[in-house]
């Protein structure tokens, strides 16, 4: 499933990241094999706050659509 569809507070693992954004997000730890969890959405619904590699990262839903994950 896409990361944008992952329910909140559900642990998942990244399967793939679209090439379009990989160079931007790789340094932030968003790479296949990494565990990720959505903590919350911004009060206005977007962007999302993720917990990844023990820190908090914010991405918009449109970027989360480019990240494929599976629940674990």
């Amino acid at each position: 499933m896409k990361l944008s569809e992952l329910p909140f507070n559900t642990q998942a693992k990244i399967i793939s990241v679209d090439k379009k954004i990989i160079s931007r997000v790789a340094a932030m730890g968003v790479i296949p094999g990494t565990e990720v969890k959505i903590i919350r959405a911004s009060p206005l619904g977007d962007p999302l706050e993720l917990e990844i590699k023990n820190y908090n990262l914010s991405l918009r839903k449109q970027e989360c659509k480019l990240i494929e994950v599976e629940k674990i």
């Binding site: 954004i21 931007r24 997000v25 932030m28 962007p47 706050e49 820190y55 908090n56 990262l57 914010s58 991405l59 918009r60 449109q62 970027e63």
Partner: peptide
């Protein structure tokens, strides 16, 4: 541009 922001 994409919004990639650390919430430190």
């Amino acid at each position: 541009a994409p919004f990639i922001l650390e919430l430190g």
